[in-house]
Write a protein that binds this DNA or RNA. Structure first.
Lengths: 231, 231
DNA sequence: GTCTATAACCGGATAGAC
DNA sequence: GTCTATCCGGTTATAGAC
């Protein structure tokens, strides 16, 4: 966050050490003391750069997202239909996170806690989520045959869908995570079919009703909202 | 877990004290030391009964589930169509958990952690989950017009659906949780319609395909399974 | 004002005596 | 089954160096 090169270098060193230790020992066993030691800084200094151990995880999110985008690369532009575009992005996602499976559960454990900065719905994680959603935006943009109204909300829905797959992956104990792969491929197929059906122009009213509900879903973050008054 | 009355009494005292303090101060602020003190036992003794602070939460799950079932009561038997049955059960759910909203986030935070005993997919929480699923089983049993194949898997799907609503509720900061109520009512409607459509006998093949995928989903708990060999 | 270090604090968890 | 004493690791307070 600081522009000075020295500061940035120290920050990187600490994050680097943390990710290494998470990989080697898992999240719990990687103590802040050990992380600081490996980074060659004092414990207090590590806390100067990262407000808490959980904040180190934000670094993990950022990093895997960058790797994911790099993995997706330019090939996405060559794919023209929705299904193969989504499939490609999801494949790359699973490949990117695979090395972290051992401790991913612990990393994601705060996802359900509204008070945690890691919660994907929290303001602190907004930047990563927005970028991740944009990737799904690219999937939609380059696809044909999707109804205009659907295009607005679809990236958010696909982000949510991908979180569901990741959640399954976290719990997946099968060899090489083959169950997750299977589920992903089948569900991508299903999603693509749903999108096709939902795009039929004859389905205007139910589509609008469903989209209205989905829009509501996204508004949860807004605080203290009052119910609509009676007329 | 112990049959002796003395043991059971101490156990209850500790759980009681814990739930009180959770309510008063929230999960984090209710220290094990304070819980032990209020229960009139030593810290070590509290740990004799509950392996960890998280294990106390299991007690919370159990308790709210019992309250939920009591709230649903006999009235469920009087309702005949699927939609009103599901609506009734979901309403009672939201009413039951409402008093715990303040600290519910912290209670549910471990839900995403495969290593946690609180994870609803873990073996330790199996009994509660099974009982909760059975409640949705009752919803399905008493309803007409649902295809036979669907009846097997539907209780599990409804349990999952209800977990989604609870997740939304956790993050809901609107007054009186009206957003959750609105979402619940609209989505119950949607679910009911989906079940109706999915029950059309003309839809045999796609229904079977979807159910096959869903069955796969449930098998994640099984450890170290190998991918199906090639033929 | 930016960075780094040392020394405590606090609370979850465990060991071992009774 | 119950206690006391202790450990361990996340976090904070604070002092001082650049």
């Amino acid at each position: 966050m600081n522009a000075r090169p020295k500061s940035a270098a120290t920050r990187t060193k600490i994050l680097e050490a943390a990710l290494e230790l998470f990989r080697e020992r898992g999240y719990e066993a990687a103590t802040m003391r050990a992380i600081a030691e490996r980074a060659g800084v004092s414990l207090g200094n590590a806390y100067y750069y990262f407000g808490s151990k959980e904040h180190l995880i934000q670094g993990f999110y950022d990093r895997t997202h960058i790797e994911h985008v790099a993995g997706v690369g330019a090939k996405l532009d060559g794919l023209k239909d929705f299904k193969s575009r989504l499939l490609w992005v999801m494949r790359k996602k699973l490949e990117t996170i695979e090395p972290y499976h051992r401790f991913a559960g612990l990393l994601f454990r705060s996802a359900a806690d509204p008070a945690s900065p890691l919660n994907p719905f929290s303001s602190e994680s907004q930047p990563v989520r927005r970028e991740a959603t944009e990737l799904f935006g690219r999937v939609v943009e380059g696809s044909k045959g999707i109804h205009k109204d659907l295009r607005v909300e679809l990236p958010n829905l696909l982000w949510l869908y991908h979180m569901g797959i990741v959640l399954f992956w976290i719990h997946d104990k099968s060899q090489g995570r083959w169950r997750t792969w299977q589920l992903m491929e089948r569900s991508v197929d299903l999603v693509a079919k749903l999108v096709t059906v939902a795009s039929y122009s004859a389905l205007g009213p139910p589509r609008r009703a469903a989209l209205a509900m989905i829009r509501k879903l996204r508004e949860t973050g807004d605080e203290n909202t009052k119910p609509p008054g009676r007329h």
